[in-house]
Amino acid sequence: MNLIVLKKISKIYKMGKVEVPALVDADLQIKKGEYLAIMGPSGSGKSTLMNVLGCLDVPTSGEYYLDSKDVGKLNDVEMASIRNQMIGFVFQTFNLLPRLNARKNVELPLIYAGVKRQERHIRADKLLESVGLSGRAEHLPSELSGGERQRVAIARSLANDPHLILADEPTGNLDSKSGEEIMKIFDSLNKSGVTIIVVTHENFIAEHADKSIHILDGRIERIEVHKK
């Protein structure tokens, strides 16, 4: 069953009077439980594709069905609820809130989901434990290493048991050892049934996925299936 269906999705940015196409007529289907890499050089439109998939950005034209829901017809509250419940984001720059400690950062999606304080606390600690950070709950992001920060971010993305993890260059700011650890977490998450889409421009990251989608100048060039 398809979790994601894109039909002729285009995104065009207006820079003054010039129109810059970032994504052109993208057609794509992603099944539940799939592990996908989006590849391409910088400026190719891979981040735009990921933002559209994550309901962070609205396409200029085309249709996007997420879990059979027409995303184009949703209002602000419904979009927010999808970002909260269905999708977990992992960013290259981690995007943790600097003034909140690791636990509070992980609790944020739970707060927006209306989970009670006690339960939030317990769930956040469990999530931190699952990414190997049980002793770090009280630490501020600035007191953690890059790899640890990204693991907090992953714990946060998993807070509401999402169907889909979207990771935008998750290892881009990490050394290769930490990067490898992060990818191992994604691998095991995928084994437990979570759909994972990783945006990257590095082959050894993409090889973790089942398939790679290659994007160039806003167009999906080819889909490569990895043999493992």
């Binding site: 962070l56 602000d76 609820s81 909260n84 995007n95 943790l96 927006y112």
Partner: peptide, 9 residues
Amino acid sequence: IRKSLGATQ
């Protein structure tokens, strides 16, 4: 960040 985590307007 907050919006990406599910904060509404």
